[in-house]
């Protein structure tokens, strides 16, 4: 099962290699990893998506916690969370195809951020499923380039 871990770490050089190295050496599988500064610039937040059963995830969390620069590890898999990743996709688009691509873009509520002579760049945010669906819909037109980030996630506020 996939787990989403929110890891707060000291914002220092070397922290990311500590975390990545830990996963490699203990044989855990990172599905995705995203890192950035938080509201407190001295703290970074790493969002990790890890594949494994409860036992593996427990070990992962404990090993992460052991790292000196790790402040807190939260498994937010079972919380009410908002999960997003970002996609940039350059799709082949001659005049004939443009109209249809723009319709797809509208349906998925993503945006066109660059118009070239023979291509468009589409920007989309969403969870894994939505991003997959967009890629699938645009594939028939010819994807020239694709880049995406790992998940970032946040627990919803109390309703």
């Amino acid at each position: 099962m996939k787990h989403t871990l929110a890891v707060l770490v000291e914002n220092q050089p070397g922290v990311l290699s500590h975390v990545a190295g830990l996963f490699a050496r203990r044989g855990y599988n990172i599905e995705s990893l995203a890192v950035g500064e938080t509201e407190d610039s001295s703290i970074s937040r790493i969002t990790l998506v890890v594949e494994g059963d409860e036992k593996v995830i427990e070990q992962v969390s404990k090993q992460l916690n052991k790292q000196v620069e790790v402040i807190k590890v939260n498994d937010i898999t079972n919380d009410e969370i908002v999960v997003r990743q970002l996609l940039l996709l350059k799709v082949a688009a001659d005049l004939a195809a443009r109209q249809e691509i723009m319709q797809i873009v509208e349906i998925f509520r993503c945006r066109i951020v660059d118009i070239g002579k023979r291509s468009l760049i589409v920007e989309a945010t969403g969870d894994e499923e939505k991003i997959q669906a967009i890629i699938k819909s645009l594939r028939p037109f010819g994807i020239q380039e694709l880049v995406r980030t790992g998940n970032v996630a946040m627990v919803r506020g109390v309703k």
Binding site: K55, E58, Q59, K62, Q63, N65, K66
Partner: peptide
């Protein structure tokens, strides 16, 4: 004393 040793 090391939590990571428990059930490792």
């Amino acid at each position: 004393i090391d939590a990571a040793e428990l059930s490792k």
